[in-house]
Computed example of a mutant assay.
Amino acid sequence: MKFGGQIVSDNANNIVHDVKDVMKLKYFGCFAHSLNLIVQNALKNIYALLEKIKAIIAYFERSTQSNEKLHQFQ
């Protein structure tokens, strides 16, 4: 979208370059796109953590001795 010498778009490097350097316009990154990228990155970290937690739980479910030791420590 063009607004009197200003453009709002996604944050793709080629778009940013063309708007700033080629068209010589003021560029504004789309807030919704930026927010989506932040959330997607955070979810990757959460999913990685969840996989580690699942592996720990599976270990204690498979090992009777480890499960008993865990209950003793708790």
Rank of each mutant, 00 (worst) to 15 (best):
K2N: 05
F3G: 02
F3E: 11
G4K: 14
G4T: 14
G4Q: 09
G5M: 00
G5Y: 11
Q6H: 12
Q6L: 03
Q6R: 10
Q6T: 06
I7L: 03
I7S: 05
I7K: 00
S9F: 01
S9I: 01
S9N: 03
N11H: 07
A12V: 06
A12N: 04
A12Q: 05
A12H: 05
N13S: 14
N13I: 12
N13H: 09
N14Y: 03
N14G: 02
I15H: 00
I15Y: 00
I15R: 06
I15K: 01
I15Q: 00
H17D: 15
H17V: 10
D18V: 13
D18R: 09
D18H: 06
V19C: 06
V19Y: 04
D21I: 11
V22R: 12
V22K: 14
M23F: 11
M23A: 13
K24S: 12
K24Q: 15
L25T: 01
L25P: 01
K26P: 03
Y27C: 09
Y27M: 09
Y27D: 10
Y27F: 12
G29W: 00
G29P: 14
C30E: 05
A32P: 04
A32K: 10
A32H: 07
S34A: 14
S34P: 02
S34D: 06
L35H: 05
L35C: 10
N36V: 06
L37W: 00
L37Q: 09
I38W: 01
I38C: 13
I38A: 15
I38R: 05
I38G: 06
V39A: 03
V39M: 05
V39Y: 04
V39R: 08
Q40H: 08
A42D: 08
A42I: 02
L43W: 13
K44P: 01
N45R: 13
I46C: 07
I46E: 10
I46V: 15
I46Y: 15
Y47C: 07
Y47M: 10
Y47W: 09
A48V: 07
A48S: 15
A48D: 15
L49I: 08
L49T: 12
L49F: 04
L49Y: 04
L50Q: 15
E51F: 04
K52H: 09
K52Q: 11
K52D: 08
I53S: 04
I56V: 11
I56P: 04
I57V: 14
I57N: 08
I57D: 13
I57A: 09
I57Y: 04
Y59Q: 07
Y59L: 12
F60R: 05
F60D: 02
E61H: 04
E61Y: 06
E61M: 07
R62T: 05
S63M: 03
S63Y: 05
T64S: 10
T64N: 11
T64K: 13
T64D: 05
Q65T: 12
S66F: 00
S66A: 08
S66I: 00
N67I: 00
N67R: 14
K69V: 03
L70I: 03
L70H: 02
H71T: 10
H71Q: 14
H71V: 10
Q72K: 13
F73R: 14
F73W: 10
Q74K: 10
